[in-house]
Simulated scan of single mutants.
Amino acid sequence: MAAFELCQQLHCCSLKAGFSSYRSVQNTLISAYSKCGNMDLAYLVFKDMGYLKTTVSWNAIINGYGINGEGETALALYHEMRKGMEDADSATYLSILNACSHAGLINDGLMIFNKMVEDDKIRPSQEHYGCIIDLLARAGCLTDASGFLSQLKIGPNAWRALLSGCALHGNVELAEFVAKKVFEMEPRESDHIVLLSNVYASVGRFKDAETLRLGMQKKAVIKNAGVSLLCKYDSG
């Protein structure tokens, strides 16, 4: 709430100072309101930009709807952007693929990824590949995700996304294989152990889950703590 109020105050200051028509200020406000969870104000700023909109502006609003769980709206804006002949860049595709992943829009996500590679000739980054793995894994297409991932030379984050999908859908055999892969890449990290333990617990293999966690303690592997961001705002 404090961050949102501060965002509104900065918006008002930009209006009074005559900076509100500056493209960089408007793009920043779209991102700021989005991160505060207020997409109504984010879209209002975006709409008021008119002809000043650039790819950065479209990216900000698409990403905003995506991170706030409104994948369908993000997808509609992406198509509106392309119809308006605005060029999509790597960040555009990362935002829309992430939105499709969290909204379960598997067919749309795959078509957009193919368009990025085939039509726009944009070379996928590890983050783009990670979104596709996450998209497939969340939808339960674990075999497809595993087959796709096995063809790539990619870091542990995409494998973690697949492992999360295994946990979500209770695929123990694949989870064990993926956890081993992650362990080979990052033997001191604990995420894969916790996820595999959760998979065991989800199918009633509580003894195996306990054994894994005890093994963490013996090897002095520390579970990564969750992090929350709190903003303190002093009106005085």
Rank of each mutant, 00 (worst) to 15 (best):
A201D: 13
D87A: 10
A139I: 01
S125T: 13
A17L: 15
V203W: 10
Q26A: 14
G140V: 00
M85H: 04
E176W: 05
L94C: 06
G104E: 07
N157M: 14
N27K: 11
G170P: 08
I96R: 00
R82F: 03
S202P: 11
V182G: 01
C141F: 12
D89L: 03
A76F: 01
A99G: 00
T211Q: 15
S125K: 10
F113G: 02
M85Y: 03
I106T: 11
L214C: 13
E5P: 08
C7T: 15
K115S: 04
R123W: 01
A137G: 08
A99E: 00
Y233R: 11
E176R: 12
S150T: 09
A209G: 09
A60Y: 07
S164G: 14
M49A: 07
S197C: 12
M39Y: 05
E80S: 08
A139M: 01
G66E: 03
N59G: 08
A175M: 07
E86I: 09
M111F: 08
S190A: 14
E70W: 05
K83V: 03
W58K: 03
A88F: 04
A74H: 06
K153P: 08
R160V: 08
K180L: 12
M111D: 11
A137Y: 02
Q9D: 14
M1S: 13
D87Q: 10
D134S: 00
L44A: 09
F206W: 15
N98Q: 04
A179L: 03
G50W: 09
L142M: 05
R188M: 14
L110F: 05
M1Q: 13
I154N: 07
Y43R: 13
A139D: 01
N68I: 05
C36W: 05
D208T: 08
E86K: 02
G236Y: 12
A220Q: 15
K121C: 05
L195E: 04
L229W: 15
A42L: 02
N107K: 01
E72Y: 09
A103R: 00
N68C: 10
E127M: 07
L152P: 05
H128P: 00
S95T: 00
L168C: 13
T92Y: 01
R160M: 10
G130P: 02
G50C: 11
R213E: 10
N68M: 06
N98W: 06
I106G: 00
N171K: 10
K219G: 09
W159S: 04
P156R: 05
V45W: 07
V194W: 06
